[in-house]
Computed example of a mutant assay.
Amino acid sequence: MDWYVIDAVEVAYERTKRCLFEPFDLWKWVKLAIILMLVGGGSGHGGNSFNSFSNSMDSDYGSGYGSGYGSDYNPLDSIGDTFDSIFSAAVMAIIALVLFLIIIFMYVSSVMEFVLVESLVSNSVKFWEYTRHFLGKGFQLFIIRIAALLLSLLVLAVLLLPFVLLFGMPSGDYFWLSFIGGMMLVIFLVIIFAVIASVFGSFISMSIPIALYNNVGVLSAIMEVLRKFKLDWQQIVVYWVGRAVLGIIVGIAALIVMMLAILVTLLPFLIVDGILYLLLSLVLSGSEWIVLVPFILVEVILFIIVMALVSMPFGAFLKYHMLSFVEKWYLEAGIPFDQGIDLKA
């Protein structure tokens, strides 16, 4: 029996080489690096117990000592309350902004999943054209991811429930034994949850080319993958194991290459910065950082670009591997490799 996860390695390697090096196109590398980066892809009881306790004590003392005691007014209290209100509003605004940016990024990431697949299959990176074309399917994937996120938060809350119960228990002879047991149970459940999340993520990844090239909805594509899984689950189980091993190997290779890139990039930057700092210190004597900081910001941007370009081939290879596996495992997917990356010139 042929295991598709193994057969797909050589095919993915050839397709990656053909896409990125035959011929080499720096602008294609930049666009694919941007796509892969984008793929990446409240509380509120309204106060605190100390303030509530203080207010209640003030009220009791006021009634006990007469009306004159309770009528004392300190203007600093109102200033402090106003400051607390402004601070709370600012924190809530920042939290809302962060949540909004996370939601926007999740939607962009969902669209870029389709853009990446189409770019690799067709061997033609048309960033804006593909983005406009896949806004609808990206929104479907976004909704599914939001639902999965909410379900994950619910499961996380259930996992944290033992800690809440343990912390609410009075300390005793068996407290630490119960605490350690609860910790082990939560760690075990978190591992199980991570495995289930990875499995569901793999089903979503495999459904993207099916939704794309069978012209069906993302949810329908996921159901098709699950139906195929029931018929041929052995290939998928071996795929999960093989992808884990392949991910470790690719991760080590990527780490080595990125470390070399860091040395090649940072050493010249440090030498240039050192020389520039010495020259500026002779001329400006104390204000050299005003000139040096913009240079450092430019270097940071260049460093990020270099890291994205260096890591991009590894991400493209893993995506090609997944697509090559789906091509063999789910023949009905109809991935048109022969019209793009496999097209003979």
Rank of each mutant, 00 (worst) to 15 (best):
L120S: 04
L120W: 06
L120A: 06
N123H: 08
N123A: 07
S124V: 07
V125N: 00
W128G: 02
W128F: 04
E129W: 00
Y130T: 06
Y130P: 04
Y130M: 08
R132Y: 05
L135P: 10
L135A: 13
G136S: 11
G136H: 12
K137V: 07
G138Y: 08
F139G: 10
F142T: 00
I143Y: 05
R145P: 05
R145I: 05
R145K: 15
R145D: 11
R145T: 13
I146M: 10
A147E: 10
L150R: 09
L150Q: 11
L150P: 14
L154T: 14
V155M: 13
V155D: 04
V155R: 10
L156D: 15
L156P: 14
L159Y: 09
L159D: 12
L159M: 12
L159A: 00
L160E: 11
L160T: 00
L160I: 02
P162L: 01
F163R: 13
V164N: 14
L165A: 09
L166S: 01
L166G: 03
F167S: 04
M169G: 06
M169K: 13
P170S: 07
S171P: 11
G172N: 10
D173Q: 07
D173A: 07
W176D: 07
L177P: 01
S178H: 12
S178L: 14
S178F: 03
I180M: 10
G182Y: 09
G182T: 01
M183N: 13
M183H: 05
M183W: 11
M183Y: 06
M184D: 10
L185S: 12
V186W: 09
I187W: 07
F188N: 09
F188M: 12
I191S: 03
I192M: 12
I192D: 03
I192S: 10
F193A: 04
A194M: 11
V195W: 03
V195Y: 07
I196S: 05
I196D: 04
I196Y: 07
S198N: 06
S198G: 09
S198P: 03
S198F: 12
S198Y: 11
V199L: 10
S202T: 14
F203D: 06
F203A: 10
I204P: 15
I204V: 15
I204M: 15
S205N: 15
S205V: 13
I208F: 01
P209M: 01
A211N: 07
L212I: 01
N214H: 01
N214T: 02
N214D: 00
N215C: 04
V216C: 04
V216H: 01
G217R: 03
S220L: 04
A221Y: 03
A221V: 06
M223Q: 13
E224Q: 13
E224W: 00
E224L: 08
E224F: 01
V225Y: 07
R227I: 00
R227Q: 08
F229G: 02
K230W: 10
K230V: 11
K230I: 09
L231A: 14
D232E: 12
W233M: 09
W233V: 00
W233Q: 08
Q235T: 02
I236K: 12
V237I: 15
V238Q: 14
Y239D: 00
W240P: 04
